[in-house]
């Protein structure tokens, strides 16, 4: 596997942990828990980072870059 792909793979794993745990926490929290918005921010940021990574990955492949 190229270094590029290893990087994407490992990044996805780590971001998956961030989004996965925030989803778990949201699931376990009461609906009126005051910390919900905070956790939701973490989840959104994680998902944003995943989307970015996906775009960057496509771009990197398309441009023929390393």
């Amino acid at each position: 596997m190229s270094e590029h792909r290893i990087f994407v793979h490992d990044m996805k794993n780590l971001l998956g942990i961030i989004t996965g745990y925030s989803a778990l926490l949201l699931d376990e929290m009461q609906g009126d828990d005051s910390r919900r918005p905070d956790v939701d921010e973490i989840r959104k940021a994680g998902e944003g980072a995943l989307a970015l990574l996906e775009d960057w990955n496509k771009g990197a492949r398309g441009d023929g870059r390393q």
């Binding site: 794993n13 780590l14 998956g16 942990i17 996965g20 778990l24």
Partner: peptide, 15 residues
């Protein structure tokens, strides 16, 4: 091989 993923799925499936 990623311990974080193992723990996350473990939590999820135990529930």
């Amino acid at each position: 091989d990623e311990p974080g993923i193992l723990k996350l799925i473990e939590r999820f499936a135990q529930k």
